[in-house]
């Protein structure tokens, strides 16, 4: 019901870099996500700050994270 609000709060992080990128993502892309996209986003939000930031800026293709690639690409683009 309050899925969006819950996600929005979980975008509050310890790193300012992530606060800003995740807020931009919420403003720009969150509303258009389908169920699978929302699940991917929530999986990404569960990563520790340092790891998530690394995934966003390094843009290396990681086989293990293939299932989150579509949302990760959006995060890399904002």
């Amino acid at each position: 019901m309050k899925e969006r609000e819950r996600a929005r709060w979980r975008c509050r992080r310890g790193l300012l870099e992530l606060d800003i990128v995740l807020q931009r993502f919420m403003d720009k892309h969150y509303a258009a996500l389908d169920e699978a996209g929302i699940r991917q986003f929530e999986m990404l939000l569960d990563f520790p700050d340092a790891d998530l930031w690394h995934m966003i800026v390094q843009k290396d293709e990681d086989e293990g994270k293939a299932d989150m690639q579509p949302v990760l690409r959006l995060l890399q683009s904002v």
């Binding site: 979980r10 509050r12 992080r13 310890g14 790193l15 300012l16 520790p48 700050d49």
Partner: peptide
């Protein structure tokens, strides 16, 4: 904690 403990600002 307002956020999950390992997401506190100490992380920065």
């Amino acid at each position: 904690s307002k956020v999950f403990p390992t997401r506190s600002h100490t992380v920065a």
